Amino acid sequence: MDDKIKFEIEFPIQASPQLLYQYISTPSGLSEWFSDNVNSRGELFTFIWDDSEEQAKLLSKKNGERIKFRWLADEEDELTTYFEIKIQVDEITKDVSLIIIDFADGDEVEEAKMLWENQVSSLKQVLGSS
């Protein structure tokens, strides 16, 4: 039963979409900003933080555009939630944005958004983007 709330946040990023894609789609790229370390075996990604680790299944990815994961804990609970990281380029201005789609319990949405803001702030530092 899904009782989590879907939310979407957008972050302008000054980086090329190609470079950005490396940081959202590869274990080495993700370990630069998303978690302390990332290992992958096929479609299974293991994200490691300090003394905890979470596993996520790669649901889909489109080269240069987006990547979508589902936490295994959510899958075991039969939740259809996921988190997706998309690169969006404005047709006219060519401005690049990172779109995050995620789910959180109703009382944790703001906290989840803040966590993403911190993560993306780390990504911007790695990229040298303001």
Results as ranks from 00 to 15, higher is better:
79 L>K: 11
80 T>D: 15
80 T>M: 04
80 T>C: 02
81 T>Q: 06
81 T>Y: 03
81 T>C: 11
81 T>W: 04
81 T>G: 05
82 Y>C: 07
83 F>Q: 01
83 F>G: 00
85 I>A: 08
87 I>M: 07
87 I>R: 01
88 Q>L: 13
88 Q>P: 00
88 Q>V: 13
88 Q>H: 14
88 Q>K: 13
89 V>P: 02
89 V>K: 14
89 V>D: 04
90 D>W: 06
91 E>P: 06
91 E>A: 15
92 I>F: 15
92 I>H: 11
92 I>K: 13
92 I>R: 11
92 I>E: 15
93 T>N: 10
93 T>S: 15
93 T>G: 02
94 K>G: 08
95 D>C: 01
95 D>Y: 01
95 D>R: 07
95 D>H: 04
95 D>K: 10
95 D>I: 07
96 V>Q: 06
96 V>F: 04
96 V>N: 03
96 V>W: 01
96 V>T: 15
97 S>Y: 09
97 S>R: 12
97 S>F: 08
98 L>K: 03
99 I>M: 13
99 I>T: 08
99 I>C: 10
99 I>G: 07
100 I>C: 06
100 I>P: 03
100 I>D: 03
100 I>A: 04
101 I>T: 14
102 D>Y: 02
102 D>W: 01
102 D>L: 04
103 F>P: 00
104 A>C: 05
105 D>K: 14
105 D>F: 09
105 D>G: 03
105 D>R: 09
106 G>M: 06
106 G>Y: 08
106 G>F: 10
106 G>V: 03
106 G>Q: 12
106 G>C: 05
107 D>R: 03
107 D>M: 11
107 D>C: 07
107 D>S: 14
108 E>Q: 14
109 V>S: 05
109 V>G: 05
109 V>R: 01
110 E>A: 12
110 E>H: 09
110 E>Y: 07
110 E>Q: 10
111 E>W: 02
111 E>N: 08
112 A>Q: 12
112 A>W: 02
112 A>D: 02
112 A>C: 09
112 A>E: 11
113 K>F: 04
113 K>T: 05
114 M>Y: 04
114 M>C: 00
115 L>G: 07
116 W>N: 07
116 W>A: 01
117 E>R: 14
117 E>F: 09
117 E>K: 14
118 N>W: 06
118 N>P: 00
118 N>Y: 12
119 Q>Y: 11
119 Q>K: 15
119 Q>T: 06
120 V>P: 07
120 V>C: 10
120 V>R: 05
120 V>S: 06
121 S>H: 14
121 S>K: 15
122 S>D: 15
122 S>M: 09
123 L>K: 04
123 L>N: 08
123 L>D: 11
